[in-house]
């Protein structure tokens, strides 16, 4: 028994490193999927790695308007992403730091990251970045309750209060889980700034949110920002995969991690497909989309309380 627990924690630590290593690959898969849909060859799967390494080796240019806030934000963001990665479970391996109530910490540590990203955007004094920051806080303020109601549903179904126990406790493919997964997928697309909320391809249009907020970053700072965004994709993805892919508890940990990784790849493919077949919705429609996700989550919660 003890060896099994040790093995599990070993996998939790390994998951941290797997997450560190493979998170940018998911972005590569999304981009490649989009390229294939558009009939292009597309960039190599490893392109995000090349970009980040190149950025880390460069110098930096800062606006004279900015202060230390602008320089601190990428570091805070990276730390928050790592903290979130340490909490989220993967396959049968619990999160490295799993405790009662870690779901609240998980959501709020992502909130801390957003706080700093937004004030860093305002620090540049640019109207474009202010615009992106304004939209970011609007959409995330609406996505937050959806995330919490979704997690509350899973908590009610399993009776546990830590992400790892919650996900381990889920077994049956229930109607509630389908609803929660749909709601969380919308939150996932919103938080990761993907279509239909935000267009990660554009830099200089008035449509985008996340990309415009980091417009003034260069060099290692931009590398940090891109890498933390990839980690965020990974942690929120791992959460959805954990809820939607119920794994038998008897499964060896390595096999469950393998399934979870396959799930992540599928999620990246799905994201790429959504981006290829959909257009970005009008900004005024975004709150309606999030409200619809909220309605799904609330239905799931009501069903789970029967």
């Amino acid at each position: 028994m003890e060896t099994e627990i040790i093995a599990m924690y070993a996998f939790s630590i390994i998951h941290m490193f797997v997450g560190f290593a493979l998170a940018p690959l998911m972005i590569g898969i999304v981009n490649r999927t989009k390229a294939v849909f558009a009939g292009r060859t597309g960039q190599p799967f490893l392109q995000p790695y090349y970009d980040m390494v190149k950025l880390l080796r460069k110098g930096a240019v800062y606006s004279r308007t900015t202060s230390w806030i602008f320089r601190a934000a990428p570091v805070v963001g990276l730390a928050c992403a790592v903290a979130a990665l340490a909490i989220v479970p993967f396959g049968n391996a619990p999160g490295l730091l799993s405790f009662e109530g870690d779901l609240v910490f998980f959501a709020y540590v992502l909130g801390l990251w957003r706080f700093f990203l937004v004030i860093a955007a305002l620090d540049t004094g640019s109207a474009f970045e202010g615009m992106g920051a304004s939209r970011e806080v609007q959409f995330s303020a609406m996505a937050e309750p959806v995330l919490f109601v979704g997690l509350a549903t899973v908590a009610t179904l399993t009776g546990s209060l830590s992400l790892s126990d919650m996900i381990a406790g889920l077994s049956l493919p229930l109607a509630e889980i389908v609803l929660v997964a749909a709601a969380l997928f919308v939150v996932f697309l919103c938080e990761n700034a993907r279509i239909p909320f935000d267009d990660p391809n554009t830099h200089l249009e008035l449509t985008m949110i996340h990309e415009v907020m980091v417009l003034d970053y260069s060099g290692p700072d931009l590398g940090f920002v891109l890498y933390s965004a990839a980690l965020k994709f990974w942690v929120l993805g791992a959460l959805i995969i954990g809820i939607t892919v119920p794994l038998d508890e008897g499964l060896p940990v390595w096999a469950s991690c393998g399934y979870a990784f396959l799930g992540m790849v599928m999620l990246a493919l799905l994201t790429g497909i959504v981006e290829s077949v959909m257009a970005r919705v009008r900004l005024l429609r975004v709150p309606q989309l999030l409200a619809a996700a909220g309605a799904l989550a609330i239905c799931a919660l009501i069903f789970s309380m029967r």
Binding site: Y108, I119, G125, V137, Q138, A141, A143, P145, V149
Partner: peptide, 26 residues
């Protein structure tokens, strides 16, 4: 739970606004 989440999100919006506009930029 839902209200606290909404309050938290809106409070972040409000205080990024105050800090960002008062102390940052030009």
């Amino acid at each position: 739970i839902a209200s606290l989440a909404l309050i938290g999100g809106l409070a972040t919006a409000c205080f990024t606004k105050v800090f960002g506009i008062v102390f940052l930029g030009e």
